[in-house]
Amino acid sequence: ALNRGDKVRIKRTESYWYGDVGTVASVEKSGILYPVIVRFDRVNYNGFSGSASGVNTNNFAENELELVQAAA
């Protein structure tokens, strides 16, 4: 299972961040479909780089994520 702070690569092909590595911000335990919230260094097309207006978190299912580096 994934944990907060883990570095993960995104495998959801239609995602803006496909192939990117993000950090797990939190994992919901309530049984929702996309329980893993991942935070990225770059914002998506809703904002400009360096601006706070873009979105830099997204929810994924565990099977859409590949663990790159476990949290220390």
Rank of each mutant, 00 (worst) to 15 (best):
G31T: 11
F60H: 01
G54S: 06
D20E: 11
R42Q: 06
S26Y: 13
K29S: 12
G31H: 12
F60T: 00
L65H: 02
S49V: 09
V43K: 08
S26L: 08
N63M: 07
A71S: 10
V21R: 00
R12Q: 06
V36K: 00
E64W: 02
V38F: 01
K7L: 12
V43M: 08
R4I: 14
S53N: 12
V24S: 01
T23L: 06
N56A: 07
K7V: 11
S30I: 07
V21D: 01
V21Q: 02
F40V: 02
A71M: 10
D6A: 03
K7Q: 09
A61Q: 07
Q69Y: 09
L67K: 05
T23M: 07
G54H: 08
P35A: 08
A25T: 13
R12M: 08
V38G: 00
F40K: 00
V8K: 02
V55Q: 09
E66D: 07
A25R: 09
N46W: 06
K7T: 08
K29Y: 11
R4D: 04
I32H: 10
G19M: 12
S49E: 15
K29E: 12
N56S: 08
N59L: 05
L33T: 10
F40Q: 00
N44M: 13
A72H: 12
Y34A: 06
L67D: 01
A1Y: 13
N59D: 05
Y34W: 08
S15L: 08
V36L: 04
A52M: 10
A70R: 14
L65G: 00
N59G: 13
A72V: 13
T13S: 10
F40S: 00
V24W: 03
I10W: 02
S26N: 12
A61L: 04
Y16F: 14
A71K: 10
Q69T: 11
E62M: 14
A70I: 09
F48I: 14
S30T: 13
K29N: 13
V55S: 11
L33R: 14
E66Y: 05
G22K: 00
D20Q: 08
I10P: 03
A25P: 00
R42F: 06
E62C: 11
Y18D: 02
L2S: 03
S30Q: 09
R9A: 04
G50T: 10
G31W: 12
L2G: 01
V24T: 01
Y45P: 15
D20L: 08
W17C: 03
E62T: 10
S15Y: 04
D6G: 01
K11S: 04
V24K: 00
G31V: 08
N63L: 05
W17P: 00
A71R: 05
T13R: 12
S26D: 12
K29G: 12
S53P: 10
V27S: 02
V68E: 02
R42L: 05
V43A: 07
E64Y: 01
V43L: 09
K29R: 10
V68F: 04
G19D: 10
V21C: 05
G54R: 04
T57D: 06
D20I: 07
V38H: 00
V8G: 01
E64L: 14
D41W: 05
Q69M: 12
T57L: 08
Y45R: 10
G47V: 08
A72I: 15
W17M: 01
Q69G: 07
G22N: 01
V8C: 05
G50K: 02
V27E: 01
V38W: 00
N59T: 09
